[in-house]
Structure formats: structure tokens, C-alpha cells
Design a protein around this nucleic acid. Structure first.
Ligand code: MN
Ligand code: MN
Ligand code: ZN
Ligand code: ZN
Lengths: 151, 151
DNA sequence: GCAGCCAATTGGAATGATTCCGGATAGCAA
DNA sequence: TTGCTATCCGGAATCATTCCAATTGGCTGC
């Protein structure tokens, strides 16, 4: 089971590895992201977090998200000029952005494709991150045409 | 010679194709982009354009860039949360973003790779645009270590 | 040539996601 | 306890971009 939610302990260890503390705020932000595995904006995360921790501030949510991203617990996703979104899926994957509904879909990338991608760089260029985004329309196959649900 | 600068005529035709007029402002913005084939921000385009057309406004530069992008004469490039950049290279290509210098490099993509990319989408998902961005460091080979020039 | 029409341009105000700041808090160490 | 910092917090500031309302300019039809 790849990429499962970390427990208190493991979560704290991961942060400690970057010289950071585990705090209630950070933990809630993290858990909220892992619970619903979509791609919320900071504002959306704020809304969800407030249900569990009404006193938290938007600034703190931004800080926590930044912190979690820095120690690799979540991924930042930027599409077009829209507000940054946060992705709990740590496996290498691309994003499909439906320009009609705004829905964002994780698209798994086979290792073979990633290998081919690195080869296109000229000598001397080393990429630490590769971002791939598809933009277009999703025409769900008939089998799924009942209640269309965005994620 | 792929992707060469359009003349007045062809430029006007291309715009007319989208029901738009060719204007001096649009033409200057276009020519400025084609002249130095880098990835300037709107602000940088504004600076360059003002040399030829001191009266132009920033709003107009934004409008022209938007217009040119809409009829496919230039490409918008968004990296991270930085200001949008504009790319005159219409061939399919990816971008390498040097996180040290900020330089942006066009990276040609073989058609075979693009084919492989489309295959990863699940049934029913059709992408009209595929954006690929590498982020990392460029360690120029010794042969190029004299005057390092950003683009 | 002139009036009318609509696209395009313009300066300035507004927007909005994100960052910054300075002061409270709170966990840990001595 | 008493510090020492890391963290949190509310509110102000930032700044790329968009919006707006007013002007301008190019055509079309007369
Ligand atoms: Mn969208
Ligand atoms: Mn940069
Ligand atoms: Zn994702
Ligand atoms: Zn480019």
C-alpha cells in the first residue's frame, strides 16, 4: 500500500528530520489533506481545518502547508495562474486539469516514461523535479455517465 | 526553417482569422518577442516595447500578449508562482527552469515522447495542451564555461 | 468627406493570493 | 521557574494581473 497516512510518531520524525517540530496545527493540516485525497487550495484547507480547530489562522495554514511541502510530506501543484493547490499523493504523477469543470485528476506515470523524459535534457542539465500537466476535457465513458462527481 | 517571424500580411491574416485586427501595438509586442527569443515577463516586454513605442501602456501590453496567446502566435508559460512568461517558440517543447539563475531553456520534445505521453491518460480524457517543466540546476559542460550567458 | 459604430487603447483603481511583520504563545532546556 | 526559540496569529503590505470608464482610431455606408 503505497503512500499511506503517517501516524503521530512517524509524522513527528519526518518533521524532526528537517529540524522542525510536530505541532497540533501541522498535524491537522496534514491529516485533513490525507483524508480527502484531492487538490484543495490553501483557502479550502483552511475551511476544512477550522472544523477541527476553529481558532487556527489562515496565516498558519499557509505556514503549515509550506512547511509540509518543504519536508516532502505534501506536494504543491501550480496550474496556470490559479491559486496553489496541495497534493497528498507522493508518488510520481502528472495532473489532468479539466478546463470545463476545474476538476484535477492524478495521472500515474510509468517509470519507463520518466526515464525517457530525463533523456531529453541536454548535457549538463539536471532536473530535480519534473512537472507534467495535461489540460483538456474529460468526456467520461458511458459506463460512468450517471452522477458525475468531481474530485 | 521552422517557426519564423510572420510579416505584416501574414500577421494580420492570422489575427483576422480570430476576428481581430492587426494594430501597431500588437505588431510591436509580437516583433519584440520574436526578436529576442527568450521568455520575458509582461513587465519585461513592456520595457522593450517602450523603446520603440514610448506611449504604450502596460495595460495594452497585457492585452496584446493575451490576444497573441489566444490566436496562437505566442505561448504563455507559467512556472511556479512566478509572473507569467511569454514564449515565441511555437514548436512543441518543454521548459527547463534553472533554480539557481532563473534562466529558462527550451527543450525540444521528440514526437515519440509526446505519443507516449498521451497514452497515459485514462479513457475519455482528451488533452488539448501538455505542459512539461523541468526544475533543477544547469552545470554547463567545460566547453561552455567561459562567458556564461543567461537567456 | 462625414457620421456612426465598434474594437482597441489607456491610466488608474480594484482584486486577490500570498507574504510580511511585530507581538503573543507555548514547548523544551537549564 | 526562567529563559530561549520555534511557532502561531491578526492584520497590513505586496504585486502581478484584471477591471473599469473614458478616449481614440479605423472602417462602413451614405
Ligand atoms: Mn481551473
Ligand atoms: Mn525562477
Ligand atoms: Zn496530485
Ligand atoms: Zn519556450
Amino acid at each position: 500500500m503505497p503512500n499511506s497516512t503517517l501516524e503521530h510518531e512517524a509524522f513527528a520524525r519526518k518533521l524532526a528530520g528537517s529540524g522542525l517540530r510536530s505541532t497540533p496545527q501541522r498535524e491537522v493540516v496534514y491529516n485533513v489533506l490525507m483524508q480527502k485525497r484531492d487538490h484543495p487550495t490553501a483557502e479550502e484547507v483552511f475551511t476544512r481545518v477550522r472544523e477541527r480547530r476553529p481558532g487556527i489562522s489562515l496565516a498558519t495554514v499557509y505556514n503549515c502547508l509550506e512547511t509540509l511541502a518543504q519536508c516532502g510530506l505534501v506536494r504543491q501543484v501550480n496550474l496556470e495562474r490559479e491559486p496553489t493547490r496541495y497534493c497528498p499523493n507522493l508518488l510520481p504523477h502528472a495532473h489532468f486539469h479539466d478546463e470545463e469543470t476545474g476538476a484535477i485528476l492524478d495521472v500515474d506515470l510509468p517509470a519507463s516514461l520518466l526515464d525517457k523524459l530525463k533523456v531529453v535534457l541536454p548535457r549538463g542539465y539536471e532536473a530535480s523535479v519534473i512537472e507534467i500537466a495535461f489540460r483538456g476535457r474529460a468526456r467520461p465513458p458511458l459506463s460512468a455517465r450517471r452522477t458525475v462527481q468531481s474530485a
